[in-house]
Write a protein that binds this DNA or RNA. Sequence first.
DNA 1: ACAAGTACTTACCCTAAAGTATGTAACATG
DNA 2: CATGTTACATACTTTAGGGTAAGTACTTGT
Lengths: 121, 121
Amino acid sequence: MTAIKESSTIQENKQYALEKCPVTFVMEKIGGYWKPIILYHLSTGDKRYSELKRAIPAVTEKMLIQHLKQLEADGLVIREAKPVVPPFVTYRLSTAGNGLLPIIDAMAAWAFKVKDGIYNI
Amino acid sequence: MTAIKESSTIQENKQYALEKCPVTFVMEKIGGYWKPIILYHLSTGDKRYSELKRAIPAVTEKMLIQHLKQLEADGLVIREAKPVVPPFVTYRLSTAGNGLLPIIDAMAAWAFKVKDGIYNI
DNA sequence: ACAAGTACTTACCCTAAAGTATGTAACATG
DNA sequence: CATGTTACATACTTTAGGGTAAGTACTTGT
């Protein structure tokens, strides 16, 4: 969680956009390079922290937990920690998180159409 | 179009994410605070530049054209300029741009569910 | 005694994206 | 002849986000 400065124009505009535009609201939740990838990996079942780390080798640990914490704070993923040593922590999608899957699917469908040249982009 | 530095880690990671994750690919296209709002406004029919400006008062002109140019470059919107003075320029969604609408709708649906408290976030 | 594994945390730096402010061409109108 | 309108462009600044590198606690294996 990076510190954000209150009352900068950019934050005010963000507020405006968030209220005006449901799409922006969603982008707030799943925006950030790694969040969609994390969500994708969690869509196939719950994962340990280290499993995610290995599944997404390019992500740094800082970014991984930072996004996981944010997703947790947003109520999209649920963290479960067993009180053992070494730690055993699993992450899984919440109901709201699962509700995102149709969006993810629609995005993937569009992306594949573009890549297959269905649209002449 | 902002100048980007080749071969920075962030750019390499972006590449990785773009290839691995179709969702990230889509986020690249519609990410940025104003793009979804612009797309939403264009979804109800073609609009003049000045109409968009008035429809989204909080956006600065720089951001508005910057995003419009980017959307145009990405093949999502089509720009049509009549060679008159004062200029008369309209923007509308391309086929690919229209293909985004199901995503936009799915996002809006999810956002409204969250706001209506359907999910207990 | 020491390395390894797990799940983090923290301090610092760098870049891309957004914002501010101002300027431009071309004509039409008062 | 000055002002307004439209659709931009461009130089400069700020900020949020991402990256680097290093450290922490607690236990098991060698």
